[in-house]
Design a protein around this nucleic acid. Structure first.
Lengths: 344, 344
DNA sequence: TCTTAGCACTCGAACTTTTAGAGTGCTAAG
DNA sequence: CTTAGCACTCTAAAAGTTCGAGTGCTAAGA
């Protein structure tokens, strides 16, 4: 499929992509000769560019304008031409230090902060999918009596989720009775992922317990509601207003569509889930994206882990005219940091 | 201070406000005669409008355009002319039902949903300040041993906040010892608001306990971090993209400033706090607002309570051209609902 | 065969001019 | 005090103009 390009064509294509990424203006043949002097006249460049256009790597907004990379052009650039490290030492250090500011312990805090840093560093919008509660393994359940008629159910997973819920207990339970129920539940559920705790399993447990105690109906509500409630995994956004700085979004209507999308968590989740690959970063350019609303954008995604278990996805969303090299470098740094600070 | 307006001037002012609220177009004298026929010719209306302009209630975008209410005009309308109930029975019912969809128990869920409903019903941006953790009263603290070296500290307030934190316990504590520490803490702290739990109090407690047990340093971290961490109270937003539909925000630059504001929680908090009054709704029009960024907007705020204790603030933010009557009716409904569902 | 200077041509962005109509203020008569 | 009538104003939209960056093509040179 991939047509072989002459070395000169590659250089020109790269020049166009880089220049367009910086300026957001169509790139003319003279600009190419001026900025990336390669001992050729503009006329020659012109001929080459005409070729590249015919091959589909460049496009012209109108007859008498410079060239702009097409989607295919970006794809070629990303696959074969891009420099691998788009980050200076200085930037790298600055970034590292802004990531490891404090001993943040809360998982949610870490992620919110990461989203912020990522969007600030890339000048794009960042999306981070929080750890998936459903995929976590059940660790233990506890019931704390609060007063006469109420108790606190606490549910803990291996990835550090702690969910709690106040429940009404219609009848009073003695400490011993409670203990009994709790240890029974722990024994049955230990090690299962939340996904695996199906309604039918819950019902089975209920039947078992009801024989002995008719009281704990409410206790199961935590389990059941956890299942429902967390169906929508949380997606954390950073720098949603950054798209306003991109010249390709100077149209209020586009802005509206974009911001609307940002408000719909399930859609964002789907976007991130569709693209994620376990091991490396994925770049989706233009209509390589499934989602209709971001077919004019590029999306770069990667995953982060806790102790080799894939937990969530990190993404950067921006116009196709994006500094791919730089963004990927930043994301790599961030993901490494995330892996580290979540594993402790 | 308030100049007395003739009945006719009041009617005309009201007509201009209502019409402008609906159309967002300057209102001409002919429009007034046509739509609100009051047996007068446009020339007469014109004279009256010229008077109203001189008095400062109306303004003209340019010489040959219709009139637009000035800030003072809105103020007069809101204070003296506005219909009190801007909501039809049907709408009221629809609203009530969308508020009480499910038996939502989580306080945060209730508020998020409220923000969504409020913004959808008003077509404006809604802000709801969550219950202030700091103002809540300490109810009880518990420590759950998780395994050999770790425990879960749970802190519960009278307004239903439950905060938890996993702590490392350097030395193993027996159940009895733990029990002793916990009941000591509960006894000392019960009934204090989180505000009142100062660092010095904590230190005093520490000193007391250290005499007996040198272990629980970590347990205090929950308390201390709770104090710091929650300094920024959460503000929940709904319908941030609604401002994009307002013609007064067709300028990308204004949009940017506005959305930027929305991303800065501390500012939002300040805006809500500045305006809140315990008992009734407050309407701030234009530069009656402290905050520079919303001097072109109108902000309506009210408070909600749990059992007569003021918990937080609800706000609606939009252009000064707003259907005040309708928005207030909706907010009244919402606040009542909120008071009810939070008190159970 | 590849490169390049030269030139006519194209097209959009920015600026200016024109036009149409909504709305005003003023005057004089009812 | 009200109103018909009219000249006047001002904007938004349409139409027209200018300017320059950039192209494609041709023909001459390496």
């Amino acid at each position: 499929m991939t047509v072989v390009l002459s070395e000169r064509k590659k250089q020109i294509l790269k020049a166009v992509v880089v220049n367009y990424t910086n300026t957001a203006e169509p790139v003319g043949s003279r600009t190419v000769t001026r900025v990336y002097r390669m001992g050729l006249s503009s006329a020659t460049i012109r001929n080459e560019m005409a070729d590249l256009e015919e091959m589909g790597y460049l496009a012209q907004p109108h007859t008498s304008a410079g060239r702009v990379p097409s989607q295919l052009g970006y794809r070629y650039y990303v696959d074969y031409l891009m420099e691998k490290d788009g980050l200076s030492m200085d930037e790298e250090q600055a970034l590292t230090s802004s990531l490891s500011t404090e001993k943040m312990r809360e998982i949610e805090q870490i992620i919110i902060n990461s989203a912020r840093v990522l969007s600030a560093a890339t000048n794009q919008t960042s999306l981070i999918m929080g750890p998936q509660f459903k995929k976590s393994a059940f660790r233990q359940i506890r019931i704390l009596p609060l007063d006469e008629s109420r108790g606190l159910v606490v549910l803990i997973t291996d990835t550090g989720f702690i969910k709690n819920k106040v429940i009404d207990m219609k009848q009073h339970l003695s400490q011993a009775e409670l203990q009994q129920v709790v240890s029974y539940l722990n024994q049955k559920l230990y090690g299962l992922t939340i996904d695996q705790v199906t309604t039918s399993l819950i019902n089975e447990l209920k039947r078992d317990l009801f024989r002995r105690l008719e009281i704990l109906e409410q206790a199961f509500i935590l389990l059941e509601e956890s299942l429902k409630e967390e169906r929508q995994i949380r997606v954390f956004l950073g720098g949603t207003t950054n798209i306003l700085n991109q010249p390709e979004f100077k149209d209020v209507d586009k802005i509206r569509r974009m911001l609307n999308l940002f408000e719909q968590e399930p859609l964002l989740f789907k976007i991130l889930e569709d693209t994620s690959s376990e091991n490396d970063f994925v770049i989706k350019i233009g209509d390589e994206n499934e989602c209709e609303d971001i077919k004019e954008c590029a999306l770069i995604t990667g995953t982060y882990k806790i102790r080799d278990k894939t937990l969530g996805t990190v993404g950067v969303l921006g116009p196709t005219r994006m500094d791919y090299s730089r963004v990927i470098s930043i994301m790599r740094l961030l993901v490494d940091h995330l892996n580290m600070s979540l594993s402790s």
